[in-house]
Amino acid sequence: MRPSSDLADLDAIGGDETVFGPELGEFPNADERRAQSTGEGEMKTGTTTVGLRTEDGVVLATDMRASLGRMVSSKDVQKVEQIHPTGALTIAGSVSAAQNLIQTLKAETNLYEARRGKDMSMQALSTLTGNLLRSGAFFIVQPILGGVDDEGAHIYSIDAAGGMTEEEYTVTGSGSQFALGVLEQEYDEGMSIDDAKRVAARAVKSALERDTATGNGINMCVVTEEGIEVTKHKEIDELTA
């Protein structure tokens, strides 16, 4: 019999080239499985997403590109989704985990409204989002949560480990450093929704010019107390003028 110390050194994915290999967990297509376990074969949004708070609501903007390794896998990804009657979430990171997170949040907000007869506050929704990410079940997603409730407009930056801060404006994704420079210069807390849309578009466009994982247009989301509007724009100049 093979010593137990040797068994502890086996690669669970790659297997072991002995008669005991299959019994101990050797898999067919080991190389492909190893790539999947390290995220090499996973569709991701390299992404630039931005969120801005105004007196009348919030504006969220994202690019529309998804990548699979070094390849552009999609040119028409909607990276901002409604998850609440007056709340929306942008996504950056793993597409599968982000889709699952959005579905879970939609279900939880619907259950909350059904049980309590009122909509969840943005503070409660941000806490729920952070708790879900902290559980480790949605690895790896970095969202921006924007919404409006009885206390006004809110923008929350939530990191992949569930850490949460409320901000006036924030960015996520691989193009963050380029977008943030635009927001630092142009953001004003007294700006209108239309002004915020222009600034958000300029921020994403700045990232698009320099970040190879960002591109193919802009998703623009406006959230007010009346509801949510999400639009797609392939021609960015129409937003920045």
Rank of each mutant, 00 (worst) to 15 (best):
S174G: 04
D188C: 08
G136F: 10
I144L: 15
E209K: 09
K205N: 10
F139A: 11
D149E: 09
A203H: 08
D188G: 03
A160W: 03
Y156L: 15
G181F: 01
G147K: 05
H154W: 08
E184M: 03
A161Y: 00
A200M: 02
G136Q: 07
M191K: 10
V204Q: 10
E167P: 01
G181T: 12
I193A: 15
T212Q: 11
A161R: 00
G146N: 08
F138T: 04
Y169F: 11
G147S: 04
P143F: 08
Y169Q: 05
G162E: 00
A137L: 06
S206L: 09
I140L: 15
D194I: 12
R198G: 12
I140S: 14
E166R: 03
T172H: 07
G136R: 12
G162M: 00
V204R: 09
K205H: 12
Y156E: 04
Y169K: 03
V171T: 13
A201I: 04
Q142W: 05
L208R: 06
E184D: 09
M191P: 06
E151R: 15
S135R: 11
P143Q: 04
I144S: 05
S192R: 12
G181W: 04
V204H: 12
E209T: 10
A153M: 13
G173M: 01
D211P: 04
V171L: 06
A203G: 08
R134I: 00
A179S: 14
R134E: 00
I144G: 07
S192C: 14
D150S: 13
A161M: 01
Y187H: 09
N131E: 03
V148E: 08
E189I: 02
Y169D: 01
A160S: 10
S176Q: 11
A161S: 00
A137R: 11
A201F: 06
V171P: 01
D211C: 03
D194L: 15
I140E: 13
V141R: 10
V141D: 06
E209A: 12
I158M: 10
